[in-house]
Design a protein around this nucleic acid. Structure first.
Length: 816
DNA sequence: GACTGAACTATACC
DNA sequence: ACGGGTATAGTTCAGTC
């Protein structure tokens, strides 16, 4: 029976039937029904021919290729057909044979059989079949399609249709719909609590589930406690089975958790195995599968599992203020939610009241995850649509991979054959590469400055890459008549002036970013913002991509050229500004801070126009802001001005603090707060009087032991397994103590401690470091000399005040 | 045993 | 293994006097 439906693909999968590859799309129709579409797809790859190979030879090669067969236990893969095309590869024209094969899994094996000397490269066999399908058939995620085809039943394709959907169709035609109504997926958030931190070691005590019209906590513990959302089961096994049942009933498009790739789903799997039950969450009743990777990604067949932590880490973290990526902190920043403090105790110690709080806490985490998902959905879905990769992939891939995928999905417009991924030896070779020289940082003179402004280059790296056409394909072997020459430390490199596909795609990204940013400003909503943001992230990742060892279009020469060009422009602009009667006081990479020197704001804008007139290509300088005051200090050694460390106040009294201890999470709150307040007082008032008084008061309090302990806690991140540390630092000493006490210690955690007084005055700091709950008095001298004074010393030095002497004088004065 | 500089480590800036 | 380089700064640790 035939049918026509309007369908939106959400999940992409594939399967083999009779040795051939088929694509399985899961999504919804416009009435909200769950649909599965089976589509046929013939994977292919390219054999690139030596330029000048004769037609006759090519025909012979094609005939040879057509006879290739790969036999394995489960299938015979053959070449279905070959086609000859005129293609581009790294910007040059070639004849290339397009080789269609019956099963993509044997692509590598078939490519290995192409030893003919006329074939100079084999490409495209290392692209995932689902990406290839999307590129080739142009069936994009989260886009509506009019689909017609034959309804299939459970017996077809060896039962592939025997899954939990309303309708399964074997596609005959799939065409993009004219109307693209907005789509809201059905989402379920979940979170587990266990009595042991280590995966699988303890029991899962409870699981919360939150969706639209769904708020549940499933448990098998303390069932007497009456809470309407708590549902009680006989044991862990029953609870796990109910968890699976509820998810099936709810039938979500997306299941979301926070760190669920790394914790919740591995734990659930471990406990399911222990209880000898199947975690059959897939639409085909399959188990959760874990893909290889640094953090294994948990995949559920037919349902998109999204670990929000992973997406936030790659897409948001550089723009967030939060010091950790924990759910509570991120939710409080992104949603403005107040944090719920909850102390994780050993199970034996919990009171009835505490169990009640535990249930509520568990539910709250799913609520936060659900709301965070709603907030992130525009970004996640736009990312998927812009990059043209499925939701599962864009939420797991790093920015380098996302960028690369964007390029791969846009190569066809340039008739370009994709470059291959580097393999092991090449990767290790690339990783040995010495660093190339980076951007320019201006050596500031420490002082308090008045009346200044900052210019910065918009999208600096992308604009240089585009304007100078820097890329792998445009890098030339030698100087040509129409090439750009760039001087690097040890050599000269040349780039063609004929615009390459990399620059073209990147300039499109920048243009779209501009366009959607304007659209957002005209019509501010989460979708226009997300679209603009997706292009911004892609543009910003392009420069790092050039130097990344895993990149298909790896080109450190282009990266090094971009920085060489950047240094040139920044320095030239600084010179020009100084000659015009301004005084540049600082610069880092793409920004220039300068004194107005009696110039008016409109004169500054005129200067900006003048500079922009002479900038090449799409390079552009813009005004960041005008500032009332700014302070630069010396380094700790005190001999010269510190780079990457300054504080500014604009004309609306808004502070901008960079690099100071205030913004560093590995300093105690006390030192950070004092420094922040002192910077604020000095910048607001233009002098240090009030700040000095304030400092004296705090030091008095410190010496009288009136400072709360929570202000004295120092937090340091554990960045690798404890055993790999060569130095025995305070945070490692504490981490070891925590392990002995069987407290959870894991990579990525912030280790918290404070410095306590000891009898041995010369004891090492690590020997004085104590866990926060210990009751030994804090070490006054340490907090004074190693926290407070280092944080404020060079600020007062700007006013020629030696703060140590002032404190010492104060001490002697009290003696008299 | 005090001192010094290198090594190790963490974190920020753009 | 899962963008880049530049920069500051604390603590430990090994070598020197």
């Amino acid at each position: 029976m035939n049918t026509d439906i309007k369908f939106i693909p959400i999940d992409y999968d594939y399967f083999d039937f009779n040795g051939k590859n088929y694509i399985k799309l899961i999504g919804r129709d416009n009435k909200g029904k769950r649909i599965c579409i089976i589509d046929h797809f013939n994977p292919y790859f390219w054999a690139i021919l030596k330029q000048g190979t004769s037609e006759k030879t090519i025909q012979k090669i094609q005939q040879k290729i057509q006879k290739i067969k790969i036999k394995s236990s489960s299938r015979i893969t053959s070449v279905i057909k070959t086609e000859l095309h005129n293609k581009n590869y790294l910007g040059e024209e070639y004849k290339a044979i397009k080789i269609f094969i019956s099963n993509y899994k044997d692509g590598h094996a078939i490519a290995d059989k192409l030893g003919m000397k006329e074939i100079i490269a084999r490409r495209g066999y290392d692209i995932r079949i689902l990406s290839k399908y999307i590129i080739d058939k142009n069936i994009l995620p989260l886009t509506w399609y009019n689909t017609s085809g034959e309804i299939i039943d459970n017996d077809d394709f060896a039962g592939i249709a025997n899954i939990d959907v309303d309708l399964c169709v074997k596609a005959e035609s799939i065409t993009k719909s004219e109307s693209q109504p907005s789509f809201t997926p059905k989402v379920l958030a979940f979170d587990i609590e266990a009595d042991e931190f280590e995966i699988g070691k303890g029991h899962i005590l409870m699981i919360s589930l939150v969706g639209e019209n769904m708020k549940k906590v499933l448990t098998w513990k303390h069932c007497k406690i009456k809470q309407d959302y708590v549902e009680c089961f006989k044991d862990e096994e029953d609870m796990l089975e109910a968890f699976v049942k509820y998810i099936k009933e709810y039938s979500p498009d997306i299941i979301t958790g926070y760190f669920s790739d790394g914790f919740d789903l591995p734990y659930l799997r471990a406990r399911a195995i222990h209880n000898k039950i199947k975690l059959a969450l897939g639409l085909d009743n399959s188990n959760v599968k874990f893909a290889r990777g640094r953090i294994p990604s948990a995949r559920i067949s037919g349902v998109i599992h999204i670990d929000l932590f992973r997406f936030i880490q790659t897409a948001y973290s550089q723009y967030l203020q939060s010091e950790t990526l924990g759910l509570n902190e991120i939710a409080s920043e992104l949603l403005g939610e107040k944090k719920i403090e909850f102390e994780h105790k050993q199970k034996a110690k919990r009171t009835q009241k505490e169990w009640k709080d535990f249930f509520e806490y568990n539910l709250q985490d799913s609520i936060l995850t659900y709301r965070l998902f709603e907030k992130a959905w525009p970004d996640i879905s736009e990312f998927s649509k812009v990059i043209q990769e499925p939701l599962f992939e864009v939420t797991r891939d790093t920015m380098a991979t996302n960028s690369e995928n964007y390029f791969l999905h846009n190569l066809d417009k340039f008739n370009e054959i994709p470059e291959k991924k580097p393999i092991h030896e090449e990767i290790s070779e690339r990783r040995m590469r010495p660093r190339y020289q980076g951007a320019f940082v201006f050596q500031p003179t420490p002082n308090l400055y008045n009346n200044l402004a900052i210019f910065d280059f918009t999208s600096y790296w992308p604009s240089i890459i585009v304007s100078f056409n820097l890329s792998r394909a445009t890098l030339l072997d030698k100087k040509q008549s129409n090439s750009t020459e760039v001087n690097l430390d040890d050599k000269k490199v040349y780039f063609s002036k004929k615009t390459g596909f990399f620059s073209k795609i990147l300039s499109e990204i920048i243009e779209k970013r501009k366009k959607y940013k304007q659209e957002y400003q005209k019509n501010p909503n989460p979708i226009t913002k997300a679209r603009s943001n997706a292009y911004k992230l892609l543009a910003n990742a392009s420069y790092g991509y050039l130097g990344f060892f895993g990149a298909r279009y790896y080109c450190p020469e282009a990266g090094a050229s971009a920085t060489a060009i950047s240094r040139d422009f920044t320095k030239k602009t600084i010179d020009l500004m100084n000659k015009q009667g301004y005084k540049v006081i600082y610069s880092d990479t793409d920004s220039i801070a300068f004194l107005l020197n009696k110039h008016t704001k409109s004169q500054v804008l005129e200067l900006l126009k003048k500079i922009n007139k002479n900038l090449p290509g799409i390079m552009e300088l813009e005004l960041e802001d005008f500032y009332k005051r700014g302070i630069w200090v010396t380094t700790r050694a005190g001999t010269f001005g510190a780079k990457k460390k300054y504080a500014l106040i604009n004309h609306k009294d808004k502070l901008k603090i960079r690099g100071f201890e205030t913004v560093r999470r590995d300093w105690c709150r006390l030192a950070r707060n004092i420094q922040n307040n002192i910077l604020k007082m000095i910048l607001e008032q233009g002098n240090h009087e009030k700040a000095l008084e304030y400092l004296k008061q705090i030091i008095k309090k410190l010496k009288k032991r009136e400072i709360e302990k929570k202000l004295l806690i120092i937090k340091t991140q554990l960045k690798k397994p404890i055993s790999e540390y060569k130095a025995n630092t305070p945070h490692i000493a504490i981490a070891r103590q925590m392990q002995e006490k069987e407290m959870p210690v894991d990579i990525g955690m912030l280790i918290e401690y404070y410095i306590a007084e000891t009898k041995d005055k010369k004891a090492r700091i690590r020997d004085k470091a104590k866990l926060p709950d210990e009751n030994i008095p804090y070490d006054i001298e340490y907090y004074l000399n190693n926290q407070i004074l280092p944080a404020v010393e060079n600020i007062f030095q700007v006013f020629n005040i030696n703060i140590k002497e002032v404190i010492e004088r104060g001490r002697q004065a009290t003696l008299f």
